[in-house]
């Protein structure tokens, strides 16, 4: 959890910058970006299962506060599900990404086609 804290501080700092008008937060970010960083930095400490668990928690928070998760989020979770062999859930997340953000269609269709390869 420690790695989340500086993010909040940095966010607050940006808000404090007088000349930069803060836009309202469009999405609930949760740990999405910091998990990406942590997974690259020390993959052994951040196995896919753990990332999935944290992202699923974030999703509950987003839903309970009626917020959206950011673009790419569902496709990212799909990739994690795929890594641990939960292919059906991966497929479902990809469909959700496409439904939420039609801009992703071409890429998501390509990823879905890859899921089905043996």
């Amino acid at each position: 959890m420690r790695f989340l804290f500086p993010t909040l501080a940095a966010g607050a700092a940006v808000l404090l910058a007088g000349c930069v008008t803060p836009p309202p937060t469009v999405y609930t970010w949760g740990s999405y970006e910091e998990l990406i960083y942590a997974a690259y930095l020390s993959p052994q400490d951040m196995p896919a299962e753990k990332q999935i668990e944290l992202l699923e928690k974030d999703y509950q928070v987003a839903r309970s506060t009626n917020h959206r998760v950011p673009p790419g989020w569902h496709a990212h979770l799909a990739a994690l599900y795929y890594q641990v062999g939960r292919v059906d859930q991966a497929h479902q997340e990809l469909l959700t990404e496409k439904a939420e953000f039609p801009e992703s269609a071409t890429f998501v269709d390509r990823l879905i086609a890859n899921l089905k390869k043996p």
Binding site: P23, Y32, E33, I36, Y37, P71, G72, A78, E103, F107
Partner: peptide, 18 residues
């Protein structure tokens, strides 16, 4: 760190790790 500022700016950002 780049997904958030670009998405909050109003764009679809492709999932960077994917």
């Amino acid at each position: 760190t780049v997904s958030r500022p670009i998405a909050e700016r109003g764009y679809y950002v492709f999932p960077v790790a994917v």
